[in-house]
Nucleic acid binder design. Structure first.
Length: 253
DNA sequence: GCCAACGTTGGC
DNA sequence: GCCAACGTTGGC
């Protein structure tokens, strides 16, 4: 995904300071969604839903989102059908999502976001200069969608994937079935069950180590400073994304 | 529609 | 950088 800053001005195709986020793909086997109360089309939300959205901090970090006007941006560039369907069909204004840093030294949850605009067509699919261009997408029937998200909290202390895994192993843990922790889980947008959300929020975010840790400030200071060693990778993104492709032959299996 | 080949994700 | 595990593509 990326961010096209203000949710309002992107209605056309200005694409302010766009930067690409993750490359979505994935496998979501389990992770059921809360029951939908109405038909697909209507975005009437009765129950708040929860999600987890991945981004590589090299490409777009929680601090980058914090620096956006109104701390709001569009989550563009999702090019996986399952992730798209989640955004398009199941995300409503007011739903919440964890901001997850992936492909970094310490992957984990770094922020809490709220959906501030329901799904609308990702205009980058028609932008020939974009890496997200999709020649097969018809303007009359957009293939790719995005939502706007607003940062609510930037966690003072990340909740590492490792901690989530440890918690999930405890008997009766609400995290036992969490999509993120399932083998082969790659989806860049995942549903989070309410029990999972509450447990993470109350036990791992609000009171990790027995201290209140979530900070209020929403400023955009301390980019590389306070964060945990993810900001240093400055500009090897291109190398990473373009050059570092490795192919694995899966033949034989 | 099947399935092998290929491409990507993302933790480690 | 390695590699498991997934998704997509395209020949048939």
């Amino acid at each position: 995904m990326s961010i096209c800053s203000s949710p309002n001005k992107d209605s056309d195709n200005t694409a302010p300071q766009s930067r690409k986020l993750h490359k979505a793909a994935g496998a979501l086997s389990t992770a059921p969604l809360p029951p939908e109360t109405t038909s697909k089309g209507s975005k009437v939300s009765s129950t708040r839903r929860y999600f987890l959205m991945k981004s590589e901090p090299d490409v777009f970090s929680v601090d980058d989102l914090a620096a956006q006007p109104n701390q709001t941006g569009c989550w563009e560039g999702v090019r996986n059908y399952q992730a798209r369907n989640l955004m398009r069909d199941h995300m409503h204004v007011g739903d919440q999502a964890f901001f997850y840093h992936s492909s970094c030294k310490v992957p984990g949850i770094v922020g809490i976001m709220e959906v501030s605009r329901a799904a609308y067509p990702d205009h980058f699919q028609w932008d020939k200069g974009s890496k997200y261009y999709d020649a097969g997408s018809d303007r009359e029937a957009p293939r790719w969608w995005m939502v706007d998200i607003t940062l609510q909290e930037r966690l003072e202390e990340k909740v590492p994937l490792e901690v989530l895994r440890e918690e999930a192993l405890k008997p009766g843990s609400p995290l036992a079935g969490m999509a993120l922790l399932q083998k082969g889980s790659r989806l860049s947008v995942q549903p989070v069950r309410e029990e999972e959300w509450k447990f993470i929020h109350e036990k791992l975010i609000m009171a990790p180590k027995g201290t209140g840790v979530v900070r209020e400030e929403r400023g955009e200071e301390g980019k590389t400073s306070s964060t945990d060693g993810e900001g240093e990778k400055g500009e090897k993104k291109d190398e990473k994304r373009l050059g570092g492709k490795k192919k694995k032959r899966r033949t034989g299996t």
